[in-house]
Nucleic acid binder design. Structure first.
Lengths: 202, 202
DNA sequence: TTATTATGTTTACACTGCAAACATTAGTTT
DNA sequence: AAACTAATGTTTGCAGTGTAAACATAATAA
């Protein structure tokens, strides 16, 4: 006779959800498939996540925490180095954890403020970016620092989106001229150089 | 006795899908709801769209065509004016047609090259952007023009994403400091000024 | 010990994508 | 004109989905 109650189902569901999300994409992550993969009844997850969006929010929160961790690894005295390292880690995360990335920065969760822990994790990440930008530039005006930070984020986020399109595309498409794919492929091949120029323009 | 065959169902399904997508978001756009709203049997759309993704692709294609249209309106001799106009139209489209925008630039359709008409429409838009950038800058090196084009798109796309987050958020959140929302709100209030500075940095 | 609460299961409903079998119409060939 | 074929519609059916409601059991508080 197996034990009726589980004990730490919530944590197990969450780690399982993270794995499934990354493996199959968040659109395939269903509450029922999650339950099945966790060997628990179909509707058991509802005791821990009131809606599917709440599950999404939990997965996204983990994503922000992970991303924060890798982005704040570099603690050099050279601020430029830190910024470049953060940028690389960001891109790497976006490409390696692309499905979780979608959840974090897509529109599946419309309003972050409905999920306080998610909101906090996302803001912490922004604060990291902002101080990296502030340290690197010699800007003092707070509004300009904000603007530069948003600029930087927007650009690198857009870049991740394009690099992912590049990954998705069949390789023979790379030879079709007059296509953004060709352009993004060139950047992809010299990402370090690109990032150098990127940083200079901040 | 009502007519069995419809005649131009495909076109009607498409316009209906566009409307529904914009109204409810593409995640709510189902083949069955589309059939119902078009007063036709549940599975009738399958005669015209083999899969749901094919329907998505058709909607996205229309989106690219529309966006191309508004972005290529401005035909001034002043290339800077054209570029700014295109940028504004892009942002406006992204904010007003945000659900279609998701379909166009999100990950719902993984590989554009599977849908030739979509691929062509998207490329046409890129070509417009690229020539606008080329005309504005005095850059001659083709690779640098490509890079500037990608840069420009990435940044403005990221900006649209952030402006949308701003729209989604309850207004009292605007007062919480140390939040990207505050920063993006400042940009939003002076979008023209922002775009001026934006263009200068291309 | 008993009452309450947290957490699990079962059942049920309305919805989804899509395949298969069937019906009707339009277009083409004889 | 008649007959065959292809295109386009309907009906039926299956497996999967989110989530609400009723029920069962275990952990905790009184």
């Amino acid at each position: 006779m197996k034990s009726y109650h589980h004990g730490n189902l919530k944590k197990e569901l969450l780690t399982c959800a993270l794995k499934m999300c990354e493996r199959d994409g968040y659109t395939k992550l269903s509450i029922r498939s999650l339950a099945k993969e966790s060997n628990v009844s179909q509707t058991a997850p509802y005791r821990h996540f009131k809606t599917k969006e709440e599950l999404y929010a939990a997965v996204a929160t983990e994503g922000f925490n992970k991303l924060y961790k890798v982005m704040s690894k570099s603690k050099s005295q050279d601020h430029k180095k830190n910024l470049i390292s953060s940028g690389k880690e960001y891109i790497n995360f976006g490409l390696k954890n692309s499905n979780t990335y979608d959840l974090m920065f897509g529109t599946a969760i419309a309003d972050f403020t409905k999920y306080p822990t998610l909101f906090i994790s996302a803001n912490k990440l922004y604060q990291h970016l902002r101080s990296a930008v502030a340290n690197h530039s010699n800007e003092k005006d707070q509004d300009r620092i904000d603007e530069k930070s948003i600029d930087t984020w927007a650009k690198i986020h857009g870049l991740v989106g394009l690099l992912r399109k590049l990954q998705a595309v069949p390789s023979k498409v790379l030879k079709i001229p007059d296509t953004p794919i060709v352009a993004i492929n060139k950047i992809s091949k010299d990402l370090d150089g690109y990032l150098e120029r990127f940083i200079e323009k901040i």
